[in-house]
Design a protein around this nucleic acid. Structure first.
Lengths: 155, 155
DNA sequence: TATTGTTATACTCTATAACTATA
DNA sequence: TATAGTTATAGAGTATAACAATA
């Protein structure tokens, strides 16, 4: 398409690396969240709430790129765990505002710390120049990747 | 832990990029596989078989880092779709050898082509130097990440 | 005794469709 | 009419535990 065979092989090698990182990070997240009784899907919803503040379930469904039905289930689980509450919407009586509890805020703060520690572990060995190169390369890749994917939020 | 605040922020920024790539690639794969009536879990098993040849379900469970019960279900689905068969193990009558069908081999060859095209789309805009820098940075990150994750195969 | 793969059971994530209450 | 969220139903992935057949 646009290069020699060896250049193609290099790109495939890069994609292989990215896919392996994807698989391993997924496992790491799943298992470390399981220790807190959480799942990736529920935690994604919590992070979205932390970023945007109290939200309707419809807004959450759009942001997460999932169905309204699914959000009902996720919120049910989180409410049962005492991490969110359903508050009445001030002007629209059809809607509910999903809101983080204080416990969830604390939990998320702790997770942010853990995430920074993970970032340190993973990237601490790279020089500032290589780290910047990595970030800019990933930004370029993201620019190509985003249009390929239907839509939804990319926390 | 090992750097200034701004260096920490840079590392967190890098992790954010990686996580976004993870999310978007997952969606891209899920939706493109769904078009073929496949799921990510089942396709992972097919790729494993392609890499290693006919395997027992126990070997697949270990390679995929999942339970034997789960492999039974995945193989059931793939067998129903005509993509694998269960053959008797030549020496161990407890075990079965899961084997790709010709149709699965063709399907996987097509997927390999699509993957190369995706690699071209994502990385085609990077100079050879930047691409090499990306790959070597990811290799270093993988070296840190692998020990953090329980175990199992990484595609 | 240990191992392979199955059945039994259960939970989570996900989707579509029908329905209720509101806009 | 359209929208927010629920109930109904269904399928896929995952896990543990108990069990049968075989090593």
């Amino acid at each position: 398409m646009s290069g020699s065979t060896s250049a193609d092989a290099r790109r495939v090698a890069a994609l292989d690396r990215v896919l392996e990182v994807t698989v391993l990070l997924g496992r790491d997240m799943t298992s470390s969240l399981a220790a807190s009784g959480l799942t990736v899907a529920r935690t994604t919803l919590l992070w979205q709430l932390r970023a945007t503040g109290p939200s309707t379930q419809r807004a959450l469904a759009d942001a997460l790129g999932t169905s309204a039905r699914n959000v009902t289930g996720l919120v049910d689980g989180l409410a049962g765990a005492g991490l969110v509450t359903r508050e009445p919407h001030p002007t629209d009586r059809r809607a509910t505002l999903v809101t983080l509890t204080a416990r969830a805020e604390e939990l998320l703060s702790g997770m942010a710390v853990e995430q920074a520690q993970l970032a340190d572990q993973l990237f601490g060995g790279l020089s500032p120049e290589r780290l910047d190169g990595l970030v800019s390369a990933l930004d370029e890749v993201l620019g190509r990747l985003r249009p390929l994917v239907p839509d939804g939020a990319a926390s």
